[in-house]
Structures are given as C-alpha cells and as structure tokens.
Simulated scan of single mutants.
Amino acid sequence: MTEDEVKELERSIEQMTAMAKEFGLDFYDMRFEIVPADVLYTFGAYQGMPTRFSHWTFGKAYHRMKMDYDLGLSRIYELVINSDPCYAFLLDNNTLVQNKLVSAHVLAHCDFFKNNAMFSNTARNVVNSMAASAERFREYEMEHGKEAVEQVLDAALAIQEHVDASRTALRRQRLRDQKIEASEKTPKTSPFEDMFALDERLRVLSGEPVVVPSQSSKLTEMELNKDLVLFLINHSKVLDDWQRDILTVIREEMLYFWPQVETKIMNEGWPSYRKDA
C-alpha cells in the first residue's frame, strides 16, 4: 500500500469504528498493523500469535502456509488476536478496498471475543504471557538441553487437546472442594459415632483389606477428571518442576485457543453479518 492509501485507510478505520459503535458493537481498543506476508504467515504459523515458544511444528506450519500463499492456493487477509487491546494485522499487499473490508470485519471479531460467553474466561493479556513463557522455555533449553525440552514439548503437544475447557469444570471443582470442607466441619450427631468404625478396625486386626473413604473419594475424583493434561500436572510422580511448568503452559494456551475452535463458524459468521449490515 502507498502512503496515501495508508492515510485513507486510517481515516476509514476511524469512520468504521464510530459506525460500529452506533450499530451497538462493543469491542476493546483496536490496534491495527500493516505487515508483509512473511510476518503475517509467521504469526499464522504461531496460531495467530506474534510470539510463541520455539518448536519444529511451527516451522513446518510456516513453510506449508507460505508455500500455499506463494503458489496462489491460499491467502491470509488478516489476523486478529483475542486480547485487550485487540491487535489486528493486515496484509500489506492487500488493495485499499480489501483492507477496508477486512478492518470492518475485525471490529466484529473483537466484539465477538469480548461478548461471547465462550470467551468469558480467556486471558486477555495472552501476548505478554506467551512472550514470558517463550523466554522461560529458552532458559530451560540452556539448563537442560534443547533436545530434552523438545521431547517434553513433543509429548505435551501430542495431548494438548485433552483438556476440560468447559465453563462448568471450574465450578465442579469448587463444589467438590466445598463438599469436602463441609463434611470435615460436620459435627458428630451422636456420642457413639466413633463406634461405627469398629467393624473396620476389626477387619484390620484380621488382616482383611480396608478401603479408606477419603482415598476412595480421591480416586473417584481422579477417574472423573477428563482433563488429562491437568491430571498429569497434579498427579505425575516422574515430572520435574520445569517439565510440569511446560505442561502447565501448554494447557493454559490450549484453554485460550479452545473457544476459537468451538466457535469457528459463528466467529466468522458474526463479522460477515455485521459487516453487511
């Protein structure tokens, strides 16, 4: 885009922003950037983020996407990040009309990110947190070796989708904790209540196996937890602290991306509808 076209685009974005608010759209402050194709496709390989930790899968994704672009098989017109403020990256060799259309499109994307219930629990400072995680992973590579870190990342990325991203997961955990706490605080209803454990004590003396209720409850909780990554973080006996940290980061990032996976069609349909309006 020429300098005059960029100025025209800036004026159009101001007008579109005002019109979008008049239509009732509610979005975070927008930050628009015009970038070349290699930068945009680097972000695309990072799943739409400007920075991530180092891993060979990102390089593989970049070469595949960039080759499709160079051959005219596909094209990324824009990338928008679910954050506050909301960042939108436009392709520099788009025409002025295309970038105007894309700018209107991303305003509705940001409105969707801010107001859709599926995104209500996502982190809005994700750009900073991902940059900090990438720096921490580089320190792990210096301390433990790049190959060791890569092996952990290979394993973590292989199971990254096995998380419980439902909005009720946290609520269920909170209710379980409250139930356990309430049971511990429940006063004895009878002065002879301790005698109910007599049968268990007799079984212990006779050598019979005894199932401790607290352990049984804990096992049931573990069996019902479908968040495999969280299960490994909490219960693995072989992970070192730095390996557990990598798993935690992968899980948190997957929880950030998961609403976009679940709302892909609606997320694109909403901007298309609002843009046409």
Score class of each variant (00 low, 15 high):
E3F: 12
E5R: 02
E10D: 14
T17F: 05
M19H: 11
E22N: 07
L25Y: 11
V39E: 14
L40K: 06
Y41Q: 00
A45Q: 07
M49Y: 08
R52P: 05
T57W: 02
L73N: 15
L73F: 14
Y77S: 06
I81L: 05
S83Y: 05
N93Q: 08
N94S: 14
L107H: 08
A108R: 04
C110Y: 00
D111T: 09
F112Y: 15
K114E: 12
N116H: 15
N116K: 07
N125L: 09
M130D: 01
A132P: 08
Q151A: 12
V152F: 02
V152R: 00
L153V: 07
L157E: 13
A158Q: 12
Q160Y: 10
S166E: 15
S166Y: 15
Q173G: 09
K179R: 13
A182C: 06
T186G: 00
P187T: 03
T189Q: 12
T189M: 09
S190Q: 06
F196S: 09
A197T: 10
L198N: 12
E208N: 14
P209R: 11
P209W: 13
V212F: 11
P213T: 11
L219T: 11
L219Y: 00
T220I: 09
M222N: 03
E223Y: 07
E223R: 07
L224T: 04
K226I: 02
L228V: 13
V229E: 15
F231D: 13
I233Y: 01
H235P: 03
D240S: 14
D241S: 07
R244D: 13
M254W: 11
L255A: 06
P259H: 11
V261H: 14
W270N: 04
S272P: 00
Y273W: 15
K275V: 08
